[in-house]
Nucleic acid binder design. Structure first.
Lengths: 144, 144
DNA sequence: CTGCTCCCTATCGGTATAATAGGAATATCA
DNA sequence: TGATATTCCTATTATACCGATAGGGAGCAG
């Protein structure tokens, strides 16, 4: 289950990518656009800054900005940092002590395959892809 | 994140399938084999019984048994019942009121694709597949 | 030095998770 | 009839996580 942390993080990153301003974008602008509390976003963005995905700048004229081009951000990286982990199964959490029953566990191979599937899905997609993923605007006015 | 409910439910189902006894298998036997508390399993199995995936029989000689052949149980069905939902995203939970931003949400198409991926994965696999999924025993003694 | 903005720590109510507990209902068998 | 085995039902608990709020400190610009 992907929580608001991952989803909000992604929305902020997309928002920043779409502004494509060279300068810093203050968080209150982003928060307003995305309709999310500034204070909550601060917490979420913290880990992204610490890991170099974002650069934060204090003071007047400060804000956040991307450190890479959108196509260089795998979605999986953002989600994994914001969520803390992408593993859907406790047994497969990095750093988990291997469960005693792993040898005989009939389900483990499936969990592993699932884990790969999830990882490949999210790491095979970048911020850029999401930007282009916008619902196509209808060329004909459907309100007619 | 798949919790113990889903994982335990699956292990019990596999256990039952592997016994392939025509009769009822008492839960304490399963619990012992699987090293899970009987009382906790009772709770988990309840919903599987209510939905007809298992049949429970009380009294001496009672227990649980499968109501179908293993190949007729999609893994997804078991997980979805035990977990309550398979949706990884709150927006896509069945019965969720559509989020106000769904039209403009850049991430939504990806969440939808992810949801399908997960569903197809788990519904495209049956208990039988898991039984055959056992780690192949090494033919050469690797402890040498 | 004033205001803006990120940064850090703490706190909180609510809910879910992972159990545990006690007993009621039901079936079997002697 | 009664003893025993088993599922079924309801309640309770401790712990942790989620989603968010709050207050203030640190740094930068004008």
């Amino acid at each position: 289950m992907i929580s608001t942390k991952g989803r909000y993080a992604l929305r902020v990153m997309i928002d920043l990518a779409e502004q494509d301003s060279d300068g810093y974008v203050p968080l209150n602008e982003i928060a307003e656009r995305q309709e999310i509390s500034v204070k909550y976003l601060e917490i979420i963005l913290k880990v992204l800054v610490q890991n170099g995905l974002l650069e934060g700048h204090r003071g007047k004229g400060g804000g956040y900005r991307l450190t890479r081009k959108p196509e260089e951000y795998p979605v999986g990286e953002i989600l994994e940092l914001a969520e803390g982990s992408l593993s859907a199964i406790a047994c497969l959490q990095p750093g988990a002590q291997p469960c005693r029953r792993s040898v005989e566990c009939r389900a483990l191979p499936m969990w592993r395959r699932f884990d790969s599937l999830v990882r490949n899905f999210f790491y095979g997609m970048t911020l850029r892809d999401l930007m282009e993923d916008a619902e196509p605007k209808p060329t004909v006015d459907t309100t007619a």
